[in-house]
Nucleic acid binder design. Sequence first.
DNA 1: GGTAAAATGTGACATAAGTCACATTTTTAG
DNA 2: CTAAAAATGTGACTTATGTCACATTTTACC
Lengths: 234, 234
Amino acid sequence: MQSIDFPFDKFNFNSDSILEGLPESDLILLNKNRVTHQYKKGEILFREGSYPTGIYYIKKGKVKKYKTDKDGREQIFYVCRKGELFGYHALISDEKYSDTTATLEESTITFISKDDFLKAIQLSPILSNRLLKCMSHEFGVLVNGLAVFAQRTVRERLALSLILLRDKYKKENQDKKPVELDLSRDDLAKFVGTARETLVRLLHDFKEDGLIEINGRKIILKKPLELSKIANLY
Amino acid sequence: MQSIDFPFDKFNFNSDSILEGLPESDLILLNKNRVTHQYKKGEILFREGSYPTGIYYIKKGKVKKYKTDKDGREQIFYVCRKGELFGYHALISDEKYSDTTATLEESTITFISKDDFLKAIQLSPILSNRLLKCMSHEFGVLVNGLAVFAQRTVRERLALSLILLRDKYKKENQDKKPVELDLSRDDLAKFVGTARETLVRLLHDFKEDGLIEINGRKIILKKPLELSKIANLY
DNA sequence: GGTAAAATGTGACATAAGTCACATTTTTAG
DNA sequence: CTAAAAATGTGACTTATGTCACATTTTACC
């Protein structure tokens, strides 16, 4: 298997770092009223334009964050995996959600109420500093994403997307097994930012060139290094 | 003149709010070693990939924030005007700059050193809270920008860009005079995310349709309302 | 004030990528 | 197990937008 040296941090939020190893006292505050809930695939956690009531933590599963335009076209701009926190921006800025978030697969998600979270921020400089650091990092990630959409071709974006998603679909303790991307062509197209038809054709080109393997809906990267060259970022 | 009800906040950072009316004690900390400098048009304040040494505040003028790709293509993703603060993300996240920032016109800019700024954050919960709020807001702004690049046509993006830039080029105490966008075709093309040739042709279409007026490099919006319809956002 | 350099504008052409209309395969549910 | 629904794949066609190669206008500067 090709190993690959890729700057994932330029494209990944780092929200795991917010709660990880937080002092017990802070965790107690946050966990006071937390509720954990099981979601089926495709369930919406919050919608763009609605008001936040709390934040979410993924114990198991994955969610997609996306925008829907006037004509109903969906653009996925981020996929959160296990361990990530989401939904805190709108809450902190006291605004409506700027995106919609839905599960990509069956997921277990913990909800922390608005009051608990805001109180914890006020009382814990550690938490507040971590949020500052995390959101500063996110700024760069989104700017990089924006540049990709503005400057790269669909083919380049697909190559990049496959690399980024492989990282998301990596399972722990399964370093031996190849990573299988398990999402619909539709969702992949919405992540890449293209039409499903175009996506399908490009996938077959990549397969022809031996860069990927396709098993039904599942995609396995055979030559991530070549793909990163096609992404043409650096 | 057409008045226009447009959600500018969805596309503008709000960094003015960070320092505005900050307690005197905090300002003293921040201003301890500040230096104000005059810049000519086109000067670079910092480059993507370099390490931050402080933050910047615009007393007069405008700067563009942009990414340059492998092939040298520039994508402007934000224009800061008088009163805005910039350069704090990389500093807070302790990372390299994710973009390059350069003056768009002759500008007067104050520099606050890294140490002073970081110390002020540690000592002032007000400042730290404002930064949190501001960066949460910026998240939504960048997500909106990303969606625009992923989903809107060049024509739509140009209409939107003209509306957003008019707001940036608005002069205080000159509500009577029409706002003149005074930037090069090249920079406008880089902001819209298109080729200069395409931009020029679309501008002439808009002129034909009476939506804008062109005086040399200067552009005046005659029908912002129509333009906002063309932008096709809501 | 005149000349070089930079910025702007235009025509011709190429092409990446979207759309539409179906065929085929896979999944779901009764 | 089977029918219906959803997801996937394919061919034909259109078009928005980029590229190249210059003409023209504006700006800068000795």
